[in-house]
């Protein structure tokens, strides 16, 4: 079913009038709610210039971008890199013909997919030593790598299995060996199918860096704390930090959609929802 217009008839004059009435009521309600929120914020003095001034001061903007955004992107980037490597290792291992290799890896993947990232983060943090400097950064990276790596392993498996069977058969018929079939024939096609799912996973990783707050990690959440403690402007800071996350994530989803159209076509997105215990690489709400 494409397009919402199949769900209702082309409206006649009376329905058009009714829809206009609905639209008007809906508009009034939405505007009223927004106005009430804005009014309450105004009343609480959240729109005063000095609460927002910090966000137009170049020195602080630099802090937000360099110590906040860049640190967050660094954590997410390292985690995604690690996750891709780990995902390839685990994913190919899970496709192995040898049970002794396949089963332990299955256990590892299931374990890290079912455990909350926050739990992993805390454990990694305590293990690295909570009092030593820099450990919270790596705790975030390690936790996100393990979780996203496990998810990407499933994505990779689904990607390889999604390559038409004839491809592998033809490759074997040419006399290629197992490794060659995987490296030369299956993997290049699988990666193409997987790429949008990998980008979606980047969004999950980026959003989950915010959990680093609980282990005192650097990045946007630490900057958020520092700014509101100094300027007593918790709400404006929250809005700005959320805005930064949203903009970066929207850019990433746009990239994923573009890649999807370009590489796979709109018809056959990789159906990851039926992967394993039904968690795929889709953005299902992160996985704190």
């Amino acid at each position: 079913m494409s397009g919402s217009n199949v769900l209702f008839d082309a409206p006649g004059p009376r329905t058009v009038a009714r829809h206009r009435a609905y639209s008007l009521v809906a508009l009034v309600v939405v505007v009223a709610v927004l106005a009430w929120v804005v009014y309450k914020l105004h009343q609480a003095g959240q729109f005063e210039g000095d609460k927002w001034e910090v966000f137009v001061t170049p020195r602080y903007l630099e802090v937000i971008v360099v110590d906040g955004l860049l640190q967050t992107l660094k954590m997410a980037g390292l985690a995604v890199l690690g996750a891709v490597v780990l995902g390839f290792v685990l994913g190919i291992g899970k496709l192995s013909d040898h049970r002794l290799l396949r089963w332990p890896l299955w256990l590892v993947v299931e374990f890290f997919r079912a455990v909350p990232v926050l739990l992993l983060m805390i454990f990694a943090w305590y293990t690295l030593g909570i009092s030593e400097p820099g450990t919270s950064f790596w705790a975030v990276v390690i936790a996100l790598t393990l979780y996203n790596g496990a998810v990407l392993a499933e994505v990779l498996r689904a990607g390889v299995l999604a390559v038409p069977k004839g491809q592998a058969e033809a490759a074997y018929a040419l006399g290629l060996r197992k490794t060659q079939v995987m490296n030369i024939v299956l993997m290049p096609q699988a990666v193409k199918i997987m790429l949008p799912a990998i980008i979606s996973q980047c969004i999950v990783a980026l959003k989950d860096t915010a959990l680093g707050q609980y282990v005192l990690a650097p990045g946007l959440t630490r900057i958020y704390r520092q700014i509101y403690l100094q300027f007593d402007n918790r709400v404006p800071t929250m809005i700005v930090i959320a805005g930064i996350y949203i903009v970066v994530n929207l850019a990433l989803s746009w990239l994923a959609t573009w890649l999807q159209k370009r590489l796979v076509g709109e018809k056959n997105p990789l159906d990851l929802t039926r992967v394993g215990n039904q968690q795929g690489g889709e953005n299902t709400g992160g996985a704190a």
């Binding site: 309450k40 914020l41 609480a44 959003k207 915010a210 929250m238």
Partner: peptide, 18 residues
Amino acid sequence: NTPLVIVFAFFAFFAPII
């Protein structure tokens, strides 16, 4: 596209104001 932590922060600090 908002991290869940920020949604929680919204209810902890923003919501009481409104």
